[in-house]
Write a protein that binds this DNA or RNA. Structure first.
Length: 280
DNA sequence: CCGCTTTCCTGGATGC
DNA sequence: TGCATCCAGGAAAGCG
């Protein structure tokens, strides 16, 4: 499932493949995923140039000519692929962009969870989700003082908190488990019982992990591959996610899987012991 | 406002 | 073997 590093990898790949091209026409094959009636969506995009591709959190922002932005969220299994015009399309192709270089840009999504919204540039950050998205998990954007303030103000379990895009942008289930393992913090730990040292460590690990994953072209779990079809290289470095019943690579204790905030959550019961209070 | 639960989807895994 | 059921999960809607 794509998280921030995977989305960034897709952004870079697509930038090389489609920026500078014109979209001659669009076919919406699954209208539920777009924010406009299909004919309106298709008409507005036809003839526009792909000027630039930006990213905010897990959202891709296709900057088009005439002050339009196509916002795209891959959710669980969304993928882009560029093929020659006329290439047989796979089963779950949801949107096809016909480009002026003889190629088609496909948006494919087996679980049909992905979303696209076509809006004017100045309306992007009014869209739900983007209107309250938290800082990027980077050294410059994610400040210690901010983290401390929002963590101590909340009474949630840390795992649930980290998944909340309005607090910090970009972390999904995989990286949440990873950064908590790295920081030796129990996923059910109440955020308001974290020490300064733990917050400092957590912040450092979030920034380091995301940055390393971007350098490694994103993680690969299930079906993810990037815009060039390359599998991510980061999968070999996972320590918690998907490691249920495996020995903790730090202390050898058998890793345990529980549910926190409706999400599968794997952690080491020894390294990541609870202290203070659990949230209720 | 806050936080928890449910819903959206399909395919692969599991159960009988 | 084949059919039914469960499970995975990001984000938003619904609810108290």
């Amino acid at each position: 499932m794509p998280e921030l590093p995977e989305v960034e990898t897709v952004r870079k790949g697509l930038t090389k493949l489609v920026v500078g091209l014109k979209i001659n026409s669009v076919e919406v094959l699954y209208p539920k995923m777009i924010n406009l009636p299909a004919p309106e969506f298709e008409n507005q995009i036809a003839g526009k140039d792909i000027v630039q591709i930006d990213r905010r959190g897990k959202y891709l922002l296709f900057r088009l000519s005439d002050d339009l932005t196509l916002v795209s969220h891959l959710r669980m299994e969304g993928k882009y692929e560029v093929e020659a015009e006329g290439t047989p399309r796979p089963k779950h192709t949801n949107v096809v962009f016909h480009l002026n270089n003889g190629c088609e840009l496909w948006y494919k999504d087996t679980r049909m969870f992905g979303k696209m919204a076509l809006v004017k540039d100045d309306e992007v950050f009014a869209l739900s989700g983007l209107n309250k998205i938290g800082p990027e998990p980077t050294e410059s954007d994610l400040k210690f003082d901010y983290m401390k303030e929002i963590l101590l103000k909340s009474h949630r379990k840390i795992k649930s908190f980290l998944l909340d895009q309005s607090k910090i942008a970009g972390l999904g289930n995989i990286y949440c488990d990873e950064v908590l393992w790295m920081s030796k913090i129990n996923p059910e730990q109440a955020t308001n019982y974290l020490s300064d040292a733990e917050i400092k460590l957590l912040r450092k690990n979030i920034i380091a992990e995301i940055s390393a994953a971007i350098k490694g072209h994103g993680t690969t779990v299930h079906s993810y591959s990037n815009a060039f079809g390359e599998a991510g290289e980061f999968q070999n470095k996972l320590h918690a996610y998907g490691m249920k019943d495996e020995p903790c690579s730090r202390c050898g204790t058998k890793m345990v899987k529980i549910k926190v905030a409706q999400r599968g959550t794997t952690y080491c019961p020894k390294c990541q012991a609870v202290h203070g209070d659990l949230s209720e």
